[in-house]
Amino acid sequence: MRLAVTGAGAVGRSVVELAGEYGHEVVAVADSSSAVVADAGLDPEALVTRKAEAGVVGDGDPGDALAADYDVLVEATPTTLGDAEPGFSHVRTALERDRHAVLANKGPVAERYADLRALARDGDGDVRFEATVGGAIPAISTVEDVEPGHVTAVRGVLNGTANFILTRMAAEGLDYDHVLAEAQDLGVAEADPSFDVDGTDAALKCVILANVLSFGAADDPADAREFTLDDADVEGIRDVPGSALRLAAEDGRTVRLIGEATGGTVRVAPRLVPENGTLAVSGTQNIVQIETSHAGRLNISGLGAGGPETASAVLSDVGRLG
């Protein structure tokens, strides 16, 4: 497949670097201010070097990449809420040209799922977004394999930063502020950690799962309930004191930021779970637990973030387009 990549952050760059290993070639890349188009395929090393040294990917206008001759658009710009722009327009451009779109950007899938589905229905291109939930974990494709109509709930630990903080607080008996500073030093938490610690990121992933369940189970997409972040009941971990984790540990339990999606509700909150239970993954690990009607409970854990990990989910999606 010929790929165009919008977004040259950690995920976009990793897609460019790894595409060749998966048998694909990258013909265009855009970041927020520039683009490079190479019909014969571009040199990943040169692109990554230029981005690192000059802060741009090429001399072209970002729109050039969207107009290039590609089979699949990989949308990897930063997640935005509300109208989910500019990511949504990038995907629309691709779908209106009957090209496929693979998203690592959560915004359009969480905030404008019905619009996205309608665009895909009107054209020949397909939309996939495995990388938006749980990084390397094949959460969406597993739900699709089991069939959304036979999945009663999906829950799990879907934010590595929040999980790292809770794990460290429990293990070291430290308070939130102390562990957050440590996580920032290690690069596990951003300078502004709100998106992760307030539960927004986990909630977006659960909203995406709720949309997959809802639209997947409906006979007619027009009847499916659409979920956005506004439909999610979200609590973060900022005001969980160290003493709460100590009390939990005395009783063989711990606290994890758990997201849950069913066909009807989305909820993210710190929850008490058994200390040695399946959901109590450590550090930056994620876990997705799928509750099925006939196949019991499926658990998949793994790395929920990181450039190459998330890029592998993107490239798996490209492979599924066939």
Partner: peptide
Amino acid sequence: LRVVAPLAGVET
């Protein structure tokens, strides 16, 4: 106050 609830039906 905040309630940290158990995960119902999941504890084993």
